[in-house]
Design a protein around this nucleic acid. Structure first.
Lengths: 88, 88
DNA sequence: CGTGACTATCCCAAAATAGGATAATATCGA
DNA sequence: TCGATATTATCCTATTTTGGGATAGTCACG
């Protein structure tokens, strides 16, 4: 569950991003979707999901919205959680 | 004001992203900051700002938050506008 | 015009990503 | 405990994106 990587982008290493990854992973599990199923909804590969959840890939705003939708989650709520917990 | 590019990421071309760019550019102008000044606050270059505003570069969630902060704007409000206007 | 402020575009080395494979883990029933 | 299956993590590398200094426009104003 931790993440092992080599050399990545700045925002990947920010705690805010870690948090976002966790929130999205939690949200997915809560809905009972596997990475594979979610990937399918997103028309992406499982490795894509594994990567952003693991913090190996950045998520842009538009992607974040798409994922939230695919999870049936409210992006605003997630954003709020992120901001609150990260003390932004 | 339109954007001329060669071969870019999918989410760059989504109307949602265009909208986001516009919202952020508007927000910046409203506060009376130049790209240069904003860039300085973000510890980035003017070209960075020009690129994301022009839709030549994706903005990840963490960056979006940082920019909103730098503009003294509420990310949630911007997100809402984006969602409403893009009919997400 | 001329000047200065601001923004867009060029360039390209350096860095990040895509996604198919495959390895590693977890789950669970017999 | 096994083995089978489901799920997730990691590898690999061609392709795509990016960073940011430099430079070319663009605009406003005298």
């Amino acid at each position: 569950m931790a993440t092992r990587t080599r050399g990545l982008v700045k925002s990947l290493h920010q705690p805010e991003n870690r948090l976002l990854c966790e929130l999205l992973a939690e949200a997915r599990e809560k809905v009972g979707l596997s990475q594979e199923k979610l990937a399918k909804r997103l028309k992406r590969t499982q490795s894509f999901v594994a990567k952003y959840e693991g913090g190996e890939r950045r998520l842009d705003v538009v992607e974040f919205l798409a994922i939230s939708r695919a999870l049936g989650a409210d992006p605003i709520r997630i954003m709020r959680q992120l901001m609150r917990r990260a003390a932004i």
